[in-house]
Design a protein around this nucleic acid. Structure first.
Lengths: 169, 169
DNA sequence: ACAATCTTTCAATAATTATTGAAAGTTTAA
DNA sequence: TTAAACTTTCAATAATTATTGAAAGATTGT
């Protein structure tokens, strides 16, 4: 038996929500984004609280974070006092934005630390040599992976497909 | 003033450890792996507990998980009763293994759910059409990204550099 | 300026996740 | 077979992280 709308919607929100960890955000944040992502119109805080059964404070804080991440925007609807919210609807632009933020928030700082650690003075001992060698290898890997991600992600429309084709060819 | 060995080591372990979330494992797990990664020889449970100041139970459980992930292996040292542990020392192989596991554990199941959700019957309403359209777009993105990652990661030696060159060219 | 409507903040609390440590389990050597 | 040396398990506890809700803060219309 095939799923109906409500069941499919709930399943999507809970799955996508629990995937939050994969892109480094919390459950409520991910669920709010999911809800907006499949909504046909901008939603008010009231509607979001109501749909997801979360408190006003929680909704407010998580909407703010989503705006900080640059994937949700406030929409002003003429004649309405409330604020309404929408999320980026284009998946590629969404992925671009998420990748950019993760690089900035997490990967770049780690690369910096790896650089520092791998630059300590070589005192000639085996353990120091090993620390330098291994952190240098990680640094190079992280830097290359980060550069690659940024490169892929800053391409024009359809970058994923294009990139994949290049790799396969 | 430049860092000395011990300070650099501690900094590496704590940075790499806190980055655990990025690749979906917990702090202790990441720290154990870090410690092994820069060690010049296999370490016993005793030594790991001691270095990281964590309990025997914690060490045992996290070592098991690292072995499940395929990035730490048991080493039997002749004449020794204890078990010793080592981690994959090659960063590229390490990245390969981690990417493979994350795909299997997290990405593949999500792709499956997105497929199901995007396959519900179109009842003609706007909201159903939107749900189908958006989850289908996410499904395609996730599937392509996963395929790309696997492709990149299954290349031979120096895959990252090679892949990057292809993309930049 | 006032009051109605709406949003944000944040201390208290709840929920989740990680860690401990002691008991039970296993392996090895004699 | 026994006991020593070691590892695993898991219920209890600690630490961390998320959530609530009510008070304070904004904004808008009259």
């Amino acid at each position: 038996m095939e799923m109906q709308y409500q069941e499919a919607k709930d399943k999507f929100i809970s799955t996508w929500g629990s995937l939050g960890t994969l892109w480094g955000i919390n459950k409520a944040m991910a669920q709010i984004q999911s809800l907006l992502f499949i909504s046909t119109k901008p939603l008010s805080m009231e509607e979001i609280m109501d749909e997801l059964k979360i408190s006003r404070g929680n909704t407010s804080m998580n909407l703010r974070q989503l705006m900080d991440w640059g994937i949700v925007t406030k929409e002003l609807i003429p004649g309405e006092r409330k604020e309404f919210f929408t999320t980026e609807k284009d998946v590629q632009e969404l992925a671009r934005q998420i990748a950019k933020e993760r690089s900035r928030r997490e990967i770049k700082p780690v690369i910096k630390t790896l650089k520092e650690v791998s630059s300590i003075e070589d005192d000639g001992t085996e353990k120091t040599k090993e620390l330098i060698k291994q952190t240098k290898a990680l640094h190079d890997l992280a830097e290359t992976a980060d550069a690659m991600m940024n490169k892929i992600v800053n391409q024009e429309q359809n970058w994923i497909t294009k990139s994949l084709l290049k790799l396969i060819k």
